[in-house]
Amino acid sequence: MIKNPEIFVITSGKGGVGKTTTTANLGAELARNGKKVSLIDTDIGLRNLDLVLRLENRVVFDLVDVAKGICEAKQALIKDRNFDGLYLLPAAQTRDKDAITQEDMIKICEKLKNFDYIIIDCPAGIEQGFKNAIAAAHKAIIVTTPEVSAVRDADRIIGLLEANNISDISLIINRIRVDMIKKGNMMSIDDMLEILAVKLIGIVPDDEDVIISTNKGEPVIANLKSRSGQAYRNIVKRIINKDEEVPFLNLEKYVGFMSLIKKFFSNKKYREG
């Protein structure tokens, strides 16, 4: 069945802010909601999405094999065992980012027609890997943390996305620490939205459950007690039900809750999807 998937790229500029974790959790939660999802790891040479999803032992073909015509896209897709409808197209581990082109990515995504969503995990940096990752994307989700370096890179990425005609950009602020914000030692959500003028789609608390679940290769969304899991589940609700108001996590009341809501819903583009 042809569904014409919505294609998201998860990007950040800076490394280590949580792109791969975000990709895994959004994909797993979308699948848990009955959607058919293909994740694509474009971090060629530094493959990790397979490991985060505990699919590392099942990689046969990879993205470069598909690009070079060594196999069909559906042969390279690994079906997740825990989440029905979730598939991974893994990156090659022994090649470099120049092994594929932007055109390759567009062609590969065109072959994945019977998915509801394609989520592309972008490598750090702004070189060829980034260009490949955004080539086929309709929408971008930027992951950042409340650190000066991450925010600066996010701002640079927003500029590059806009220059590449990706105007639907939303922001996930990751690793929020309420205790530090309260003391004034961490930028608040409002502080960051002031600097990065894009719509907010989620805030994720700094949570050791993420480390524990990644150790085991189980997305944290499956942990119904964890706050970060709840944060990711909320983001997926906002992705699926574009018009529905999904309240932000309780922790936001400490960080300018009302102004946050105002900012989120004053963004017309988001509401119209």
Partner: peptide, 11 residues
């Protein structure tokens, strides 16, 4: 979970 992580990483 750290033992699970270590085992998976080694492999």
């Amino acid at each position: 979970s750290k033992d699970v992580a270590k085992g998976r990483l080694k492999l």
